Simulated scan of single mutants.
Amino acid sequence: MIFRYRDYHKVDNEWVKVFEDGYFKLSSITVNKPASTVINVTSGEGLLFVLKGLVKVNEVSMGNFDVAYIPKGSSIRIELNPGTLAYLAESWADNTRGFYVKKREAVKPVTSGIPPYERNVYTMIGEGDPADSFLMGYTEGSIGNWTSYPPHRHDGKPEAYIFYGIDPGFAAQFILSDDEELAYVVHDFDVVLIRKGYHPNVASTINRVNYAWVIAAPRGQRTLSVNVHPLYSGLPMGQTHLRMGK
């Protein structure tokens, strides 16, 4: 399921809903003047991440690709600089944890795969980080390369891809399951929600495919384990942030 930036970006300086799918929700804000907003995360946990611009949360400054974990029951004020585009993901939580910020510059990327499916992966919220539901990171491919490859699936663990750094080129996102085969042309800040199926993507020959990925795992399934398509299970991967199955 795709949500086009041009469709969900209706107004500036206000939070707008991108999607709400069961317990998994994603909102976005674009600001063109200094703005202040309050986020209330009452029934679950939240992730605030910045794809461009500068914000300040709980007196902590955040820039491009930084991520803040917002605990259950929190009400926090955010100061946003002009030109900022930020997202808030929300999911279930049973526990009340502490607020923390992960800086992208402090996360060492894993270079995964080989050409033509080589990419750098920054795991911002991994299995070892405090969270009940969320796993989150960034994938940045090489020009013309595939990512999310070899094709893998984790049915039952919904995931959102939020694309960036593609325009003026394009990329193609595929979702392949037993009952349907879908393909979307994606551009900057388009969002694809993946409920099930294999989900590889590929860039055109003049650009990369880059995206934030957010997994909202159900209870008892907060792992980066995946099932690889059997036809592609023997492909060399080198390093990987995933737990690869067959």
Score class of each variant (00 low, 15 high):
1 M>I: 14
1 M>Y: 12
3 F>M: 11
5 Y>V: 07
11 V>L: 07
20 E>F: 01
21 D>N: 14
27 S>F: 00
28 S>R: 04
29 I>S: 02
29 I>G: 00
29 I>E: 02
30 T>S: 10
32 N>L: 04
35 A>K: 07
37 T>W: 10
37 T>D: 09
38 V>K: 10
40 N>P: 01
44 G>M: 10
44 G>W: 02
44 G>S: 12
44 G>Q: 14
49 F>Y: 14
50 V>M: 07
55 V>I: 14
55 V>N: 01
61 S>Y: 08
61 S>A: 13
64 N>F: 04
66 D>K: 07
70 I>K: 00
74 S>E: 11
77 R>E: 15
86 A>P: 05
86 A>Y: 01
88 L>T: 12
89 A>Q: 07
90 E>Q: 13
93 A>M: 07
97 R>L: 15
100 Y>N: 07
100 Y>D: 00
103 K>T: 08
104 R>Y: 09
106 A>W: 09
106 A>K: 11
108 K>V: 06
110 V>P: 07
111 T>G: 12
111 T>L: 15
112 S>D: 05
112 S>R: 11
114 I>D: 07
115 P>K: 00
115 P>I: 02
118 E>M: 15
120 N>E: 03
121 V>I: 15
127 E>N: 06
128 G>N: 12
134 F>L: 06
135 L>T: 06
135 L>F: 04
139 T>H: 03
142 S>V: 13
146 W>T: 08
146 W>P: 03
148 S>T: 05
152 H>A: 02
152 H>D: 03
155 D>Q: 03
156 G>N: 08
157 K>M: 08
160 A>S: 11
165 G>K: 01
166 I>L: 11
169 G>A: 14
169 G>D: 14
171 A>L: 11
173 Q>D: 07
175 I>Y: 03
176 L>G: 07
177 S>C: 07
178 D>M: 11
181 E>V: 09
187 H>I: 12
191 V>H: 09
192 V>A: 12
193 L>V: 13
194 I>A: 02
196 K>V: 09
197 G>A: 07
200 P>N: 05
200 P>L: 03
207 N>T: 15
211 Y>H: 14
212 A>E: 00
213 W>Q: 05
214 V>K: 03
214 V>M: 04
219 R>W: 10
220 G>L: 09
225 S>F: 15
225 S>H: 13
226 V>I: 15
227 N>T: 14
227 N>W: 12
230 P>D: 00
231 L>V: 10
232 Y>F: 08
233 S>D: 08
235 L>Q: 14
236 P>T: 10
236 P>W: 15
242 L>N: 06
